[in-house]
Simulated assay, not measured.
Amino acid sequence: MISHAERLRSLMALAVVLQKLGAETRVGSRTPGLEVIVTRTNGKKAGTFVAVDDLRGFFWWKEPHHHPIDDVPGAARALLVFLHDDAAYLGGS
Score class of each variant (00 low, 15 high):
residue 5 A to E: 15
residue 6 E to T: 13
residue 6 E to A: 06
residue 7 R to G: 03
residue 7 R to Q: 14
residue 8 L to E: 08
residue 9 R to D: 14
residue 9 R to G: 02
residue 9 R to C: 07
residue 10 S to G: 13
residue 12 M to L: 11
residue 12 M to Q: 13
residue 13 A to M: 08
residue 14 L to Q: 03
residue 14 L to K: 05
residue 15 A to H: 04
residue 17 V to M: 09
residue 17 V to C: 07
residue 18 L to M: 06
residue 18 L to R: 03
residue 18 L to C: 04
residue 18 L to Y: 08
residue 18 L to I: 09
residue 19 Q to I: 02
residue 19 Q to P: 02
residue 19 Q to S: 04
residue 20 K to S: 11
residue 20 K to V: 06
residue 20 K to L: 14
residue 21 L to A: 10
residue 22 G to T: 11
residue 22 G to Q: 10
residue 22 G to V: 11
residue 22 G to M: 08
residue 23 A to C: 06
residue 23 A to S: 14
residue 24 E to M: 10
residue 25 T to I: 13
residue 25 T to P: 05
residue 26 R to C: 02
residue 26 R to F: 08
residue 27 V to H: 12
residue 27 V to C: 00
residue 28 G to H: 10
residue 29 S to R: 15
residue 29 S to M: 10
residue 29 S to C: 04
residue 30 R to A: 08
residue 30 R to H: 12
residue 30 R to W: 15
residue 31 T to S: 07
residue 31 T to G: 00
residue 31 T to E: 14
residue 32 P to C: 02
residue 32 P to A: 04
residue 32 P to N: 08
residue 32 P to M: 01
residue 33 G to Q: 10
residue 34 L to M: 06
residue 35 E to C: 02
residue 35 E to D: 13
residue 36 V to E: 03
residue 36 V to I: 11
residue 37 I to K: 12
residue 37 I to D: 01
residue 38 V to R: 03
residue 38 V to P: 01
residue 39 T to F: 05
residue 40 R to T: 05
residue 40 R to D: 01
residue 41 T to I: 04
residue 42 N to Q: 05
residue 42 N to R: 05
residue 42 N to T: 13
residue 42 N to Y: 05
residue 43 G to Q: 07
residue 44 K to P: 00
residue 44 K to M: 09
residue 44 K to T: 14
residue 45 K to W: 13
residue 46 A to P: 09
residue 46 A to S: 12
residue 47 G to C: 01
residue 48 T to Q: 00
residue 48 T to R: 00
residue 48 T to I: 12
residue 49 F to G: 00
residue 49 F to V: 04
residue 49 F to H: 01
residue 50 V to E: 01
residue 52 V to K: 04
residue 52 V to N: 00
residue 52 V to P: 02
residue 54 D to Q: 12
residue 55 L to S: 07
residue 57 G to I: 03
residue 58 F to R: 03
residue 60 W to C: 00
residue 61 W to K: 10
residue 62 K to S: 13
residue 62 K to A: 09
residue 63 E to L: 11
residue 63 E to M: 08
residue 64 P to I: 07
residue 64 P to H: 10
residue 65 H to P: 01
residue 65 H to Q: 12
residue 65 H to M: 09
residue 66 H to Y: 15
residue 66 H to P: 01
residue 68 P to M: 04
residue 68 P to K: 05
residue 68 P to H: 04
residue 69 I to R: 09
residue 69 I to T: 00
residue 70 D to A: 08
residue 70 D to W: 10
residue 70 D to K: 12
residue 70 D to R: 14
residue 71 D to R: 14
residue 71 D to C: 07
residue 72 V to E: 04
residue 72 V to I: 15
residue 73 P to Y: 09
residue 74 G to N: 14
residue 75 A to R: 02
residue 75 A to G: 08
residue 77 R to W: 06
residue 77 R to Y: 07
residue 78 A to L: 07
residue 79 L to K: 01
residue 80 L to G: 02
residue 82 F to T: 12
residue 83 L to M: 05
residue 83 L to Q: 02
residue 85 D to L: 07
residue 85 D to Y: 06
residue 86 D to R: 15
residue 87 A to G: 00
residue 87 A to Q: 12
residue 88 A to V: 03
residue 88 A to I: 03
residue 88 A to M: 11
residue 90 L to R: 12
residue 90 L to H: 05
